[in-house]
Structure formats: structure tokens, C-alpha cells
Amino acid sequence: MGEVLHVRDYRAYFHTRRGIVKAVDGLNFNLSAGETLGIVGESGSGKSVFLLSLLGLLPKPPLRIESGSAQFGGMDLVTASEDTMRSIRGNKIAMIFQEPMTSLNPYLKIGTQLIEPLMIHRNKTKDEAFKIVKGSLLKVGIGDPDRALNAYPHEFSGGMRQRVMIAMALTTHPEILIADEPTTALDVTVQAQILELLKSIQKETGMAVILVTHDLGVVAGVADRCLVMYAGKLFEQGSVDDIFYRSQHPYTHALLKSTPRLDKALAALPSIAGTAPDLSKLGPGCPFDARCEYVKEECRNSFPTAKRTEEHESFCHLEKLP
């Protein structure tokens, strides 16, 4: 399958008064059409900053892209002009967010908001656009599109609003859909429905999906490949099987251990001891050193280079995980 996105050595730092916050520090990955890439990592690991900055949605300053490139459709998103980025956003790359309750404008009818991408990017008239979005609403499981178009967001539940967001993202047939924790704010059954919906739409349209989540269970369910981030750094990436069954990284291990499993009932879920480091005070070593049970001298002095077996890539000084 064709590759749609190449990210190389991507570094995005916040230059704040209190110092430089290295929110994203060296990401490398490829994304193929039709593929779902899961990005996991604890809170504050830089997942949102990476994706928002990729689309040019974070103000610069304070953010600066320090290095790297993101090749998409024959151009580099890092150096593209604001006008170019605007023509890509909501068109070739669409994004949905964690907070369905607040991501829609409370003052405008859902219909008015839904047709905006088509009117901006496809020069559709209102009538044409309404016809198309009705189709999209049906596709995301909203049975009465006419009513939905005339409703205001507050008349809908969180799950319904997230469906609306997905419908909006789909209207322009994007090549990539970025979903930043799309189900975190929803209850479990709705969560499953939304993920199911994303999966089926993807099968139909062949778009690539980047799915950010805290929940490794979600990754196991819907992702093809997975990327593990910690403190702005890439720790491990590979197929879902690589990550779940052949993980080479102590952090991934710890994450897996703290994920609830249906087949093993545990009295109490172990969580990873310690807290994530302050991203403005990182040394040259591995940022996980203080919390890692296998920490060695060299971990404190240098960040490891990649250990690779085919698609599977892991960044750890440890020869082999015991």
C-alpha cells in the first residue's frame, strides 16, 4: 500500500519564560493508506502537541518546530505556508478531538457547521453541501439527518456529537483522519460503537487513521501498528503484535501491565511507579531512567539508538528484556 505520511526526526519545543519544553523530541514513522496507527503514552507525553503542531494548529511562538520533516502528498508540512496548511486542514487531513461536548460551536446549528469544509475546500453551494452531509450523517448512524442539521449541539449527547464530528471530517474524503482520544470522554458502550464506526468507514474509504489513546485495549482492538511515546520521545513502534507480544521496552511492558485485561481479573491494577519528568528539565539520558527497574549507568548519560527487527523498533540500552 502507498505511504501517505513520512515523519522524520520531528522535534517541536515550546519556548517559554521558564525554559524550553521539549514536548516532541525526535519522532520517526511512516503511515500507509488504509492503515490505523495507534499512538499511546501517558498524559503529557506529547501526543496532542505532535498532532496539533503537524497541522499547524498551535501558535508559534511559543511553539517552534526545531527540526525534522513531515512529507505528505509531495510536500513538507513543516515548511508549508499557512495558506497551504489551511487548504490541507479539514480537506486532505481531518482531525477530531477528545472533547465532543465542546468541540462544536454552541451558537451555530449543526448543519451550518457541517457544511463548512465542503464550502471552503470544494466550493460547493449550500444546497449541494447539505445534500452531501446528509449522506455523511446517515453513514455515521444518525438516522434523521434533517432533524440533526437543524439542531444545536446542546441537543445532542456526547456520543452523537462525536458522530457529528466524524461525519464532518468525512465530508471531504480525507487521506488521513487524526483522532485525538476520540472516545475518552464517552462511556464504554458508546466508545465501542464509535471505534467500530471508525473501523468500518476506514474499510470503505481506505483512509489512514492516526488514533491517539491512553488505552492499550483500544489499540489492540483497532490499530494495525502502534507507536509508544514517553516524555516527547519515541520509545517503541511496531505492529500491534510486536508491541503486545514481542515488546522490547521496559516502559511498554509497564504500560501493558497496567492495562486491564478481560481474561485476567486482577484485584488491583498496578500503575507505573513514579511520575513523568518535567519536560523542561530533561538531561541527555533516557527520560524514563528514574522510573525504570532495569536502569543502568549508560541510561543516565545517553539516549539509546534504535534496535530494529524489520518494522519493529525499540529505543532502550537493555540488550534483551528479562
Binding site: A94, F97, L104, L108, H121
Partner: peptide, 26 residues
């Protein structure tokens, strides 16, 4: 600074339209 303005940007709307349509009213 609200989420729905970020959504409007993520849709690729120009800043002027975001101001007039999405932020002025509220």
C-alpha cells in the same frame, strides 16, 4: 481559546471567517 474555535481552524477556515462566524457571537 475554546475547543470549537480549534475545530474551526482544523476545518481549514480562514481566520477572518472564524472571527466573524465563530467567535464574534459568543
Amino acid at each position: 481559546s475554546l475547543d470549537f474555535v480549534r475545530t474551526a481552524r482544523a476545518k481549514g477556515l480562514p481566520e477572518s471567517l472564524i472571527l466573524v462566524k465563530h467567535t464574534l457571537r459568543g
